[in-house]
Amino acid sequence: MSTAKKPMITDIFVAGAKKGWIIASTSTVPNVLMAFVIIAALQLTGALELMGNVFSPVMAVFGLPGEAAAVLIGAWMSMGGAVGVAISLFDAGIMTGEHIAIMVPAIYLMGSQVQYLGRILGPIGTEGRYIPVMIVISVINAFASMLLMNIII
């Protein structure tokens, strides 16, 4: 770090922002678009309302509406998708800012695990028999974080 030519702080910022542009254009935009389509489909078919009713007793424990379950299910597949789902539920007036604050840590704690099975546990060489346990612990983590956030907020 010290011997190489010192880069300007502006260059460092721009390099980071460029990385942000790539993440935004290749991950955020497609994921949010997908989430909006899924929520639109769920709304049109009435499945979202059904989901809201079915999950309402469970989610109420965390101070959340039943539909918030869609955020968690989405998170498990893709963190970015879950953020999109949360935003579209906020837009639809189903979730409030407080609900979102409760859910943020949970989205990441159980987030993108479908992908991370291959990207974390694969390269490390974790034994297959531990994988279900690790997933269960991540989900426990997510629900515990919602309990905690519900108390804090």
Partner: peptide, 24 residues
């Protein structure tokens, strides 16, 4: 999808700014 796309575009500057600052 179209609304999702327009909304997603509004997220781009936040992501770029956050990643730029993290790099710094």
């Amino acid at each position: 999808a179209r609304d999702g796309f327009m909304f997603a575009l509004t997220l781009v500057p936040t992501v770029m700014f956050a990643m730029g600052m993290i790099a710094v």
